[in-house]
Design a binder for these strands. Sequence first.
DNA 1: AGTAGTCTACCGACCGCCCGGTAGGTTCGC
DNA 2: GCGAACCTACCGGGCGGTCGGTAGACTACT
Lengths: 228, 228
Amino acid sequence: MTALDNAALRAATGAANGEQDRRAEIYRSAARIFHRKGYHATSINDIAAAVGLTKAGLYYYIKGKQDLLFAIMGFAMDQLDEQVIEPARRVEDPQARLETIVARHARLITQDSSALTILVNELEGLLPDDRADIIGRQRDYVDFIADTLAALRDEGKVLGLDPTVGAFSLVGMILWISRWYRADGRLDGDEVVAEVTRMAISAVLNRGEDSNAGNPARTGQPAKETRE
Amino acid sequence: MTALDNAALRAATGAANGEQDRRAEIYRSAARIFHRKGYHATSINDIAAAVGLTKAGLYYYIKGKQDLLFAIMGFAMDQLDEQVIEPARRVEDPQARLETIVARHARLITQDSSALTILVNELEGLLPDDRADIIGRQRDYVDFIADTLAALRDEGKVLGLDPTVGAFSLVGMILWISRWYRADGRLDGDEVVAEVTRMAISAVLNRGEDSNAGNPARTGQPAKETRE
DNA sequence: AGTAGTCTACCGACCGCCCGGTAGGTTCGC
DNA sequence: GCGAACCTACCGGGCGGTCGGTAGACTACT
């Protein structure tokens, strides 16, 4: 069920298969509305109307409100896994890996923040088992960042920073983008991603002259890896 | 706490300003519950039960659910004004001022995050006019931080950072604390505040050797003002 | 001292509304 | 004629909010 739904969601702007498209449209609409109004403030009717169905018609596609939320969150976590964690895992140098994580996560948010934002804001709307599932995956992500910070520390590029606090702080910085970034604003998505990535790297790296193991720490632009 | 307050209040019937105490207790309870479950997922009955009243009894003290939310948010903004903005305004050196802002805001969150977290998470629960009021005050806060970053840039301590993006990013880092910090966790509140403050300063200051207008930019530890 | 009135602080019962969800069709392409 | 894709009509229940009370402390007057 969940895997199927996720596959449906992933079929973004498709041509073929009618049912899958419809389902994907429903999930996308629901994600947008949940994002805008919040899960509890959104009624099944709101979603049905947004996709041009009645409430009963909508129930042909979904099992219930909570399942819908869980499916959206599962999709968001899959997105994070595929677009951020997996690519970053293939980067061996810790600093480059951190840049990959931040830049890719930030980019995901500037592109479409709905699902990823619901992922962090509506956890209490889930059933306990589902919530445990999502929280576990989130914790893995934070641990992944914390491990990267620990590796940077072992290289001597970071001094006296608690990796866990560092990881949480970076995540907070990134997630917050969805609250202030507007696609039609002064800065475009790429500029925002670059700015935030630079701040993130700068936040964890040691400043200045001291104890820097080799490696002429780049102080200017971020890395190349910010796009694929 | 609640039971104690109620017992004390009941025992001291006839004492001076019981009404204000009761009202404060209601706001505090409501803030805690809104924080835990979210505004929309919290019923008036939940709050009434938490303070040992019936729903009808609660309405003797409040005008409605939305007014209650607005009152809590107003209180949170007042707290921010008094404990963060005003003290920081009296610090003239921009870097020290930034440290004051971050440290004081972070400290407020580690002490009691309920109201301050509601302030950012439940905006859509407000009436449009109330929301505009709160958003305006929030924007003033971000502008205050952005101005401080701009001042740092004018001193040459910050290069090529957009002050607005910088301000938002720092705010995101700080606000996120309420999502992961536990008073009974590995680190105590002061340690977390210190860590986050160091990261924030490090995130915006220039690293290393280049193009620094005069001014021996401190590249080692941050400043003293991180605690009072 | 007694008692009538007043006010604070609450409660039980109720209202209309809308919620998530369902039963039982109906339409329509194949 | 059959199943996929929807619909209308409805259900029980909980919601925010209101109404009409009332116990009891306090005051005022006789």
